[in-house]
């Protein structure tokens, strides 16, 4: 598609610099939206989507494979589990304190229900950002057309399809 004399469109210095400048703000802002959902618009879902978009932004600036090495897939799946566990855990904790499921008022302390709600928003944020990140990485690495055809036809592909070429893009 591009001319043969030009190198392929790899990471542009300008884009990398801009993303490097913007990314901390996006992360901070995503966490702000999650934490501050009790006071201003937003909440776990929106903050999680912003944090997920941050990972996508990094992947576009620096390439998907370096980002995949940086963001550990196990950590992402762990985020999902921790999010749900937080939510259910708070519900069960209120039951253990002789309240109903998710009855925050039984937790001792001033403003306890507000803090419990904020913790739950964080859990939802962890779930959403984890789902977005893993969806991105999986679709990106996923169904290669040639690999699928090779799988279906039973031919041996020249490269192993499951092996993402992690060494090439990082340079």
């Amino acid at each position: 598609m591009s001319d043969a004399r030009r190198s392929p469109y790899v990471e542009s210095t300008i884009i990398m610099t801009t993303v490097r400048v913007i990314a901390p703000f996006v992360m901070t802002y995503g966490l702000f939206v999650m934490f501050h959902g009790a006071k201003s618009p937003g909440g776990g879902f929106q903050g999680g989507a912003i944090v997920g978009a941050l990972v996508l932004m990094l992947a576009f600036a620096f390439g998907a494979d370096p980002t995949r090495e940086w963001v550990n897939q196990r950590v992402v799946v762990g985020l999902l589990v921790v999010g749900v566990a937080t939510f259910v855990g708070i519900g069960l904790a209120t039951m253990a304190l002789r309240g109903s499921f998710l009855e925050y008022a039984v937790i001792a302390g001033a403003k306890s229900s507000k803090y419990a709600i904020e913790l739950i928003e964080l859990g939802i944020g962890a779930i959403v950002s984890g789902v977005i990140t893993s969806l991105f990485f999986l679709i990106d690495a996923g169904f290669d057309v040639e690999a699928d055809a090779a799988d279906a036809g039973g031919e041996t592909p020249e490269e192993t399809p499951g092996e993402p070429s992690s060494g090439e893009v990082g340079s």
Binding site: A38, K39, G83, F87, G91, I127, V128
Partner: peptide, 26 residues
Amino acid sequence: GVENVVTAVLAAYRGFDTLGEAVVVF
């Protein structure tokens, strides 16, 4: 103790429903 009514409804009044949604996403 939450100023944003939307968050209060989502996380407290219908918290069980929100738990269901979170589990669906999960």
